[in-house]
Design a protein around this nucleic acid. Structure first.
Lengths: 68, 68
DNA sequence: ACAAAATGTAAAATATAGTTGACATTCTGT
DNA sequence: ACAGAATGTCAACTATATTTTACATTTTGT
């Protein structure tokens, strides 16, 4: 199931997957995979993503993500 | 740095590391490592732990965990 | 319509999360 | 003090998150 909240938060900052990825210190494919729902990221990376996007874990990663 | 909030939440449910581990479907060492701060668990496992302990991600895993 | 940027996706390689088994230490109750 | 449970820790193993390279497709602006 896709993580549409992450996608939306990124869009709200007008950032590409690539830009978010480099600010988080990971590859673009990792961000892509997380948004697409393929990946099960580590909490450390989730925290990093949240900080860059000014969101909390609950806002982006709590509960079963959106529909797939 | 240790995750004392996790340790406290577990204590509040009167659960051993072993009991929490089996309810989360992981080994006792994994829970031990997370509490001790050695591990960087996946978001999936964090969610599972939160559900078992009736907490949210922000409550147990947001911000740099407690002092080490 | 066109070019450039952004996104989706895949295979092979590397890094690391999580397991298993085993043993030492600390905590708890009696 | 003692026994049993809970916890800390280690090494070798397995599973999987993440990287790298590369290419196809879709979006966006002009």
């Amino acid at each position: 199931m896709k993580n549409l909240r992450l996608k939306a938060a990124r869009a709200a900052k007008d950032m590409s997957q690539d830009a978010l990825a480099s600010m988080c210190g990971v590859s673009r494919q990792t961000i892509n995979g997380i948004e697409k729902g393929d990946y099960n990221p580590t909490i450390k990376l989730c925290r990093q993503i949240c900080k860059v996007l000014d969101k909390t874990l609950d806002e982006l990663f709590w509960e079963d993500e959106e529909e797939g």
